[in-house]
């Protein structure tokens, strides 16, 4: 990344006008900022066609020589290299100039992943791209603050300087499940995002069973990960019973921390449970 500072830009801009009749070039202010209107003075008499070609616009208008060509802010909203040309019956003359980005006032903030298991180390990645008001990347180093606001626990801030308009940081989730809010700030601009810290693999998965008129009702103990976080509702728990008739399986979703299902078996049976790659206890009826 440090090498990015040593970027050497190639300045060779070989301007070679087609016209054989060279006339004085247009005089453009040396330093221009995106979105700032400016004027170009012209000399002589008669009319010419004025062209302004930039990364995001093409302007063509007839100008009265001796007057000033007014270029609006919208016409140079995109930062980059512009060509100003003046063409008449005697040919074309012109110049090129650079429009630089304005101050950093906008931020594109990407926070991943949106759901992160509590055990995943350095799994949260925050990346911010800094722009001026016209979405030109601001290449000057600016400081972006990443404020982290967990639901349970103290808030903290990480400040990162941009390199070529980018700031990024890695963070680890807390041990407890729940949402965490991360706000990226540059200047007055704030961009909040929320990610969910979620339970990891089920741990110590246990079931209990009792006979009913319809068969056997199987119910898990509250399903939690090894940190004690409840697995989210909807997590599938697979219950398998083997009896004389064969095997019976049910994929039951966890509801309010517990998975519950009815197995249509009546004789003696062995019942086991699993969730993903986690395997639970086995009981015999």
């Amino acid at each position: 990344m440090a090498k990015m500072h040593s970027l050497v830009f190639v300045p060779a801009l070989a301007l070679s006008l087609v016209s054989s009749a060279q006339v004085p070039t247009l005089q453009v202010p040396a330093r221009l900022i995106a979105g700032q209107a400016f004027t170009i003075p012209t000399h002589g008499q008669g009319e010419k066609t004025f062209y302004l070609l930039g990364p995001g616009s093409v302007v063509k208008r007839t100008v009265e020589l001796g007057t000033e060509v007014k270029v609006t802010g919208a016409e140079i909203a995109a930062a980059g290299r512009y060509l100003a040309l003046s063409c008449g019956s005697d040919g074309c003359s012109g110049t090129d100039f650079f429009v630089l980005p304005g101050d950093a006032v906008k931020i594109s903030f990407l926070l991943h992943p949106s759901r992160v298991p509590v055990t995943a180390h350095n799994a949260i990645n925050a990346t911010a791209f800094v722009f001026d008001q016209f979405h030109n990347p601001v290449l000057r180093p600016v400081t972006v603050d990443f404020r982290v606001l967990p639901k349970n626990g103290p808030a903290f801030t990480k400040s990162v300087k941009t390199v070529q308009g980018v700031a990024w940081s890695e963070m680890s989730p807390a041990a407890k499940e729940g949402p965490v809010k991360v706000i990226a700030t540059v200047g007055e601009q704030e961009e909040p995002r929320v990610i969910q810290q979620v339970a990891s693999e089920a741990c110590n998965l246990r079931i209990k069973a009792r006979r009913t008129s319809k068969g056997v009702e199987v119910e898990t103990d509250p399903v939690r990960d090894c940190h004690g976080n409840a697995v989210p509702d909807g997590t599938i728990v697979s219950v398998t019973a083997v009896d004389a008739q064969g095997r019976t399986t049910v994929d039951a979703p966890v509801k309010k921390g517990i998975a519950r299902t009815q197995l249509p078996i009546h004789g003696s049976a062995t019942i086991s449970v699993a969730s993903g790659v986690a395997i639970g206890n086995e009981i015999k009826l």
């Binding site: 070989a14 301007l15 087609v18 990364p55 060509l83 074309c92 650079f98 990347p137 290449l139």
Partner: peptide, 29 residues
Amino acid sequence: IYREKVNQQYLVLMTPGADRWFVRSLDQL
């Protein structure tokens, strides 16, 4: 009305799509 040969630097930001990378930002330096 104009012709030139130029070496131009661009700062490019690309992001992945369903089956390809897209140019999201293309700015002259």
